[in-house]
Every structure is written in structure tokens, then in C-alpha cells.
Simulated scan of single mutants.
Amino acid sequence: MGADFAPVARALSARGVELAIAPGQEPWPLVRVGDATILWQGIDDPAARARALEAGAHEVVGPWMHEAETVARIIRLADAEQPRLRIGELTIRLVDRRVERGGRPIPLLAREYALLLHLARRPGQAISRAELLRAVWRLDFDPGTNSVEVHMSRLRGKLDRGFAVPMLHTVKGRGYALCPDGYWPERA
């Protein structure tokens, strides 16, 4: 792979992108990110680049590019491969655990992310406190604390602050619901 690729590999690793490196048909190795194949080309050779793209490579990068451009191209491919959960204007990236609402990033702590993900897997449904304790805290009993309420309050603040319509609702007597359109449907 050569020393030329080392700074790119470090930058990708710092961003959580996992690389798999395999020998290529050219004298340069292939880099795999998810299902995408990227050829690291040691020299700027447009004809070899065209052959690689025609043969199915998703991208060709090399030391002739600025490091930031190389990293951005590889991250773009990695991002396209990442599974996501979308609920209305909310996007949850399941691999790197990033959350966005309306295109705005929402930084979450691990427990907040776990709560949101559990609610997001059943949008529009009320999830009981007992179920959240089992699913997120791995407790089969009520510890008698207000941990669920505190975490839900923090999550609500992060998820709904700055938006006209809240997505996270407390459903009296039933639990909590994440509603894609922001409104809790009155259900019996």
C-alpha cells in the first residue's frame, strides 16, 4: 500500500471507517469499504484509472490527490453503504450511531442512542417504562429510580429542541412514543 496511503488510512480510521485491503490486478492494491471497491493507484495513470472503473471499481484514488479529497471520496462511498433507519425527518445511522433530524446532527450518549433506537424500531407505538428497562438497561425489575424519566427528558431535549413539532411524546399511563409526523395519534 505504501507510505503514501498511511495518512489516508489513519484519517479514515479516526472517522470509524473500516478498510479491507486486497491485492489488485494492477500493481496496486484494492481497498474495500463495505461493498465498494476502491483502487489505490500509486501513480497518476488516466488509462489505468479508466480500465479500473470499467472493470467495476467504484473509485480510483492516489497520491496525486490531496489527502482530504481522497478521504472525502472514500467516506462518501462508506456512507452510501451504511444502513439507516428513517422516521420522518429523523435519520439514524446504524453503524456509526450518528443521528440527524432535519439534516442537523444530534449528538447522543450511548444510553440515549439505545433508547431512541428502541423507540424508532416501533414508531407511533407507546413503549412502556418496563419494556424500556428490559431492552435498554437489561433489567427485569423496576429499580425504583427515575433513570428512564431522566434519560427520556435528556433525549427529548436533544431531539426536539429547536424544532417546531416534537417527535418524542410521553403517553400518560402507557409510556413513550416516537412519532414521525410529530403528533401522537389518540389510540385506545
Rank of each mutant, 00 (worst) to 15 (best):
M1R: 11
M1G: 15
G2M: 07
A3M: 11
A3T: 11
A3D: 13
D4G: 08
P7S: 04
E18Y: 08
I21N: 00
G24L: 10
E26C: 13
E26I: 13
P27Y: 04
W28Y: 13
P29R: 14
P29F: 08
V31T: 05
G34H: 13
A47D: 03
A47V: 07
R49Q: 10
L53Q: 06
G56W: 03
P63Q: 00
W64G: 03
E67F: 00
T70P: 02
T70M: 11
I74G: 01
E81D: 14
P83W: 08
L90R: 00
R93I: 03
V95I: 15
R97S: 09
R98H: 12
G102M: 02
I106P: 10
L108E: 07
A110L: 12
R111A: 08
E112T: 09
L117F: 09
L119I: 05
L119W: 07
R121C: 11
R122L: 10
Q125L: 11
L132P: 04
R134E: 14
A135C: 03
R138V: 12
V148P: 05
H151K: 14
H151I: 12
R161L: 13
F163W: 10
A164D: 10
H169C: 01
K172D: 14
G173S: 07
Y176Q: 07
W184A: 01
